[in-house]
Measured scan of single mutants.
Amino acid sequence: TLFEALYDYEARTEDDLSFHKGEKFQILNSSEGDWWEVRSLTTGETGYIPSPYLA
Results as ranks from 00 to 15, higher is better:
Gly47Asn: 01
Asp8Pro: 03
Ala11Thr: 03
Thr43Arg: 01
Asp8Leu: 05
Ser51Gln: 04
Ser18Arg: 02
Thr42Phe: 08
Asp34Arg: 05
Thr42Met: 09
Thr1Val: 14
Ser31Gln: 09
Leu41His: 04
Thr46Gln: 11
Leu54Ser: 09
Thr42Gly: 08
Tyr53Glu: 04
Tyr7Pro: 00
Thr42Tyr: 08
Thr46Arg: 09
Glu4Val: 14
Glu14Gln: 11
Ala55Trp: 10
Gly44Asn: 06
Ile49Ser: 00
Ser30Phe: 11
Tyr7Asp: 07
Thr1His: 11
Tyr48Asp: 01
Phe3Leu: 06
Thr1Glu: 12
Leu2Val: 13
Thr43Phe: 13
Gly44Gln: 05
Glu32Ile: 11
Val38Met: 02
Leu28Arg: 14
His20Val: 13
Gly22Glu: 01
Leu41Gly: 02
Arg39Thr: 04
Asp15Asn: 14
Asp34Ser: 09
Asp8Cys: 11
Lys24Met: 13
Leu28Tyr: 13
Thr13Glu: 07
Leu17Thr: 15
Ser31Thr: 11
Val38Lys: 00
Glu32Pro: 08
Gly33Thr: 10
Asp16Cys: 14
Phe25Tyr: 14
Ala55Val: 12
Lys24Thr: 07
Ser40Val: 05
Lys21Asn: 03
Glu4Cys: 13
Phe19His: 03
Ile49Met: 15
Thr42Asn: 06
Ala5His: 04
Gly44Phe: 04
Pro50Phe: 15
Ala11Lys: 08
Ile49Phe: 01
Thr43Cys: 05
Ile49Gly: 15
Leu41Trp: 06
Gly47His: 05
Glu37Pro: 00
Ser40Phe: 03
Phe25Asp: 00
Pro52Asn: 15
Asp8Glu: 07
Ser31Pro: 07
Phe3Thr: 03
Arg12Asn: 08
Leu17His: 02
Tyr9Asp: 03
Thr1Ala: 12
Gly47Ala: 03
Glu10Trp: 10
Leu28Pro: 01
Phe19Gly: 01
Leu28Met: 05
Leu6Phe: 13
Ala11Glu: 01
Tyr53Gln: 06
Ile27Lys: 04
Glu4Phe: 12
Ser51Arg: 10
Tyr7Phe: 10
Gly47Lys: 05
Leu41Asp: 10
Arg39Cys: 04
Asp8Val: 04
Asp8Gln: 03
Phe25Ile: 02
Leu6Cys: 12
Thr42Leu: 13
Tyr9Gln: 02
Ala5Lys: 02
Leu2Gln: 06
Glu14Asn: 12
Leu54Arg: 06
Phe25Glu: 00
Trp35Asp: 02
Gly22Phe: 09
Arg39His: 02
His20Met: 10
His20Ile: 10
Gly33Cys: 11
His20Asp: 03
Asp16Glu: 15
Ser31Ala: 10
Ser31Tyr: 08
Leu6Trp: 11
Trp35Lys: 08
Phe25Trp: 02
Gly22Thr: 02
Asp34Cys: 14
Pro50Met: 12
Tyr7Arg: 07
Val38Ile: 02
Asp16His: 15
Leu2Ser: 05
Val38Tyr: 02
Leu17Arg: 15
Glu4Trp: 11
Glu37Val: 10
Gly44Glu: 02
Arg39Lys: 08
Trp35Arg: 14
Glu23Lys: 02
Trp35Thr: 14
Gln26Ala: 08
Asp15Thr: 13
Phe3Ala: 05
Ser18Lys: 05
Gly44Cys: 08
Pro50Leu: 10
Tyr48Glu: 07
Ile27Asp: 00
Ser30Ala: 13
Trp35Asn: 10
Ile27Ser: 00
Leu6Glu: 13
Lys24Asn: 03
Tyr7Gln: 13
Ile49Arg: 03
Phe19Ile: 06
Asn29Trp: 07
Val38Thr: 00
Lys21Glu: 03
Leu28Ile: 10
Ala11Pro: 03
Phe25Leu: 05
His20Arg: 14
Glu10Ala: 08
Thr13Ala: 11
Gln26Pro: 00
Tyr9Arg: 03
Thr13His: 13
Thr1Trp: 14
Gly47Gln: 02
Glu4Thr: 15
Ala55Phe: 10
Glu23Tyr: 04
Glu45Asp: 07
Pro50Gln: 08
Phe19Met: 09
Thr46Phe: 06
Ser30Gln: 11
Glu45Ile: 09
Asp8Gly: 04
Ile27Leu: 11
Leu6Ser: 06
Ile27Arg: 04
Asp15His: 14
Leu6Lys: 11
Tyr48Thr: 05
Gly22Leu: 01
Asp34Ala: 09
Asp34Gln: 09
Glu23Cys: 06
Gly22Ala: 02
Thr42Ser: 11
Thr42Pro: 00
Glu45Trp: 10
Gly33Pro: 12
Tyr48His: 06
Pro52Trp: 15
Trp35Val: 07
Thr43Trp: 03
Thr46Tyr: 05
Thr1Lys: 11
Tyr7Ser: 06
Phe25Ser: 00
Trp36Asp: 00
Ser31Glu: 09
Glu14Ile: 09
Phe3Cys: 09
Phe25Cys: 01
Glu4Pro: 02
Trp36Arg: 00
Lys21Ile: 13
Trp36Pro: 00
Asp16Pro: 02
Gln26Glu: 14
Leu28Glu: 01
Trp36Ala: 00
Ser18Asp: 02
Phe3Ile: 04
Leu54Ile: 09
Glu23Trp: 14
Glu10Ile: 12
Trp36Asn: 00
His20Thr: 11
Asp16Met: 14
Ser30Pro: 06
Glu23Met: 05
Leu41Phe: 06
Gly33Ala: 12
Ala11Met: 03
Ser51Pro: 07
Thr13Asp: 08
Ala11Asp: 02
Asp15Tyr: 15
Leu6Ala: 07
Tyr7Ile: 07
Trp35Met: 10
Ser40His: 06
Leu54Gly: 07
Ser40Arg: 14
Leu28Asn: 01
Leu28Cys: 06
Glu45Asn: 10
Ser40Leu: 05
Glu32Leu: 13
Thr46Ala: 04
Ser51Trp: 14
Trp36Met: 12
Leu17Pro: 02
Asp34Leu: 13
Glu23Gly: 15
Arg39Pro: 00
Gly33Phe: 08
Pro52Leu: 14
Ala55Tyr: 09
Leu2Thr: 09
Tyr7Leu: 07
Arg12Asp: 07
Arg39Ala: 03
Gly47Trp: 13
Leu6Pro: 09
Ser51Lys: 09
Ser30Tyr: 14
Phe3Tyr: 12
Leu41Arg: 00
